[in-house]
Every structure is written in structure tokens, then in C-alpha cells.
Design a protein around this nucleic acid. Structure first.
Lengths: 175, 175
DNA sequence: CGACATATTGAAGGGCTTCAAGCTACGTGG
DNA sequence: CCACGTAGCTTGAAGCCCTTCAATATGTCG
């Protein structure tokens, strides 16, 4: 979503095969930017999907699953954007990319978006993203090959850093 | 969600009649705190809901609607938490409360949660929430009666402030 | 009333943003 | 092929907003 002050907030990051979140209103109030060349964005009219879903329980079930996945991403995103520090945000982002991209051998990750997009995704400034990456590099946690290729050397360091600040108390509530 | 460092991030704020977001995993990884006395939290087992939804298109449709509403709240929350300043966050919160609570006459709002909860909801510190409120008070935008009762005097000021920083470019994408 | 949680207010410090200047990578045209 | 221009990235310095710590105030319940 673009904002009047020139800032954006990237609400969701979709990789091939992912589905976009829907909005509750009648109007689409988001924009979709296709980054990867050859991306096909398929939009389905609300009303027709509703009708089809009414008749096809299987489709309805898939819609629920897809939507829940989007909600999970949103909630995780909210945690990241809300509290933790810049370096931890960038670290979490790298981990997420490593998990969601078909990761090559030995933690090699090709970043699908630019620093500017990462900044908008994490609610940071470009400069801070850059600084965080060089910080991680200097600490030997990652290795940068070019600007888009990141090798995660010490995945445990990222993971423990993230978990330290994101760890939820695992409760359950009875039915 | 509680975190190891003592911070929380309140993911969603439910008022009477609202439904909670679901998570995609098998485990519940959130906690539900009931604030209002007499609150009844109804939990439905995942599997059974799925079965019922398969057989009842009407129920399935309602589930979709409820979930989309939750997603909308999450997206709005992401925008607020992500970028804007403390005063704007608090202002947006007041507007949201005024809109979602059955608002009394002349913009009188009874805050359903404490400053601490507001702070966690907006990803701020308690002190900053308090300062923002007194700032709004001094500027004559609101009047505080006790700690939980807020009268919104200049709703337009809040609204324009929020819209200035949250305004999205309204695009549509064809099908 | 006293005790405790909740709110407010002050002061110091830190992390992020902003502005500004190089730097790198890449494509285009000479 | 190389020069050049632009977009993306990095790095530095100054400033601001928020956080943190600390103290006081308010209000709530025994």
C-alpha cells in the first residue's frame, strides 16, 4: 500500500504459488506489484467465487486453507514489524526467505526483492536495512555475494536471535 | 502473544460479537485474555468445523466473511504499527474504538483496555501512550474524564491526521 | 486508611530516520 | 569496447522520536 507521505507498507509478500489476501470491503484497496518477470496475477471476482464455493465444499475448504495461510503470514509480520530491532527484523526476513524460497544448497538465498522493498516490508528505512546486512556480514553470520545473493553461514545465530525475541508462551485453551 | 523479553504484541482486539482469528498450524500459539467480565470464549475444534462447513454452504460462507473481517483488521493494524508516529497511532486507536464500540452521544468513548494493553496493541511503551494522550488533550482534540473515558472533541483533526499518513492510492486491478 | 495496580511526568540515552555523499552494478549509445 | 548515465546500494553524520529508568500521582479494593 502506498501512502501519501511517500512511504509504503508492504502487507504481504507472495511467492510463486501463493495466494493473495482478500479484503472484506467491496473495493480493492491494495495494489499488486509483480516483481518477477512472467508473473501471472489471476484475479477472481468476489461474487463468482462465493457462488462456486457454495456448491463445491472442496473449493471452499481450499479457500479457507489459503486464507488461513495468509492470516498466519500477517500475524507473523505483525510480530516482526511491531517490536524487534532492525537487525532482528532483517535476520527474520532472511530466515523467512530461506524457508519459503526453494533454498539452494548450504543456505544460499536469492533475495527476490530489492533493499527498498525489504525496507517497506519490514517498516524500516533502506539505509537501516543495508546497515543491518553489513552488520550481520561483519559478525560472520552471512556472506553477501553481489547484492541479491545471501549465504546464511550461521543459521543458528539468526534462529536463536529471532526466537529469543519472538518466542511465544505456548498455551492452549480448552474447548 | 507474550514474548520472552517481557513484551507482548496484541495481535487482534476482539469486541463482543467478534470472532477470533484462526491459525494455520495444528497448535494454538496465541493466548486469549478475556477482559470484560462475563466474557464467554467459545472455541470450536478445527476438525469438526471443517466437517460442518463441508456440509453447510451457509456456514462456510459465514466463516469466510468472519475470517476476511479478521484479515482486514490485521492489515489495518500492520499499517498502523508499521509506520506512523506515536500520536497518530493513539489517534487511530481512538477512532477505531469510537467506530467499533457502540459509541455514546457526542464522541464519548469508554476505553475497553488499560494503557498497558493499548501500548502492546500499538507496539509502544506505556509512557508514550500516556504522553500521546496528554498531548492530544493539551491540543484540545480530546478530553479525558477519569482514565478510561475519552471524549473526542475534534474528530476531524484525528481523522485528517490519520488519513494524511495512511491514505492509500486507490487502484483497481482488472480481472 | 494503607496497599497495590494503574497513570502520569521527568530526564537520560539509544536506535532509527533523514539528509548527504560516494560507491557499485548494469544497460545504452557513441 | 568503453564511456556514460541511471538505479540500486553502502556509508557517514546529525537529529529526533521513542524507550527506559525513576519518581510521583491517581484511583481502586481489601
Amino acid at each position: 500500500m502506498a501512502r501519501a507521505d511517500g512511504h509504503r507498507q508492504i502487507v504481504d509478500l507472495l511467492l510463486p504459488g501463493d495466494f493473495c489476501g482478500f479484503t472484506a470491503g467491496d473495493e480493492y484497496d491494495c495494489t499488486v506489484d509483480a516483481i518477477v518477470e512472467g508473473t501471472v496475477v489471476a484475479g477472481y471476482p468476489r461474487r463468482r467465487v462465493e457462488m462456486l464455493a457454495d456448491q463445491d465444499p472442496q473449493l471452499a475448504r481450499e479457500i479457507r486453507e489459503v486464507t488461513l495461510g495468509a492470516m498466519s503470514r500477517l500475524q507473523a509480520q505483525l510480530l516482526i514489524v511491531g517490536r524487534i530491532t532492525a537487525v532482528e527484523k532483517v535476520g527474520s526476513f532472511l530466515l523467512e526467505m530461506a524457508a519459503r524460497m526453494s533454498e539452494g544448497p548450504s543456505g544460499l538465498v536469492l533475495l527476490p526483492i530489492s533493499r527498498y522493498d525489504i525496507a517497506d516490508y519490514l517498516a524500516l528505512s533502506v539505509e537501516t536495512v543495508s546497515r543491518s546486512l553489513t552488520d550481520l556480514k561483519h559478525r560472520g553470520v552471512i556472506v553477501l555475494s553481489g547484492t541479491r545473493c545471501v549465504k546464511i553461514v550461521d543459521q543458528d545465530a539468526l534462529r536463536s536471535e529471532r526466537d529469543r525475541s519472538l518466542a511465544c508462551a505456548h498455551h492452549r485453551w480448552a474447548h
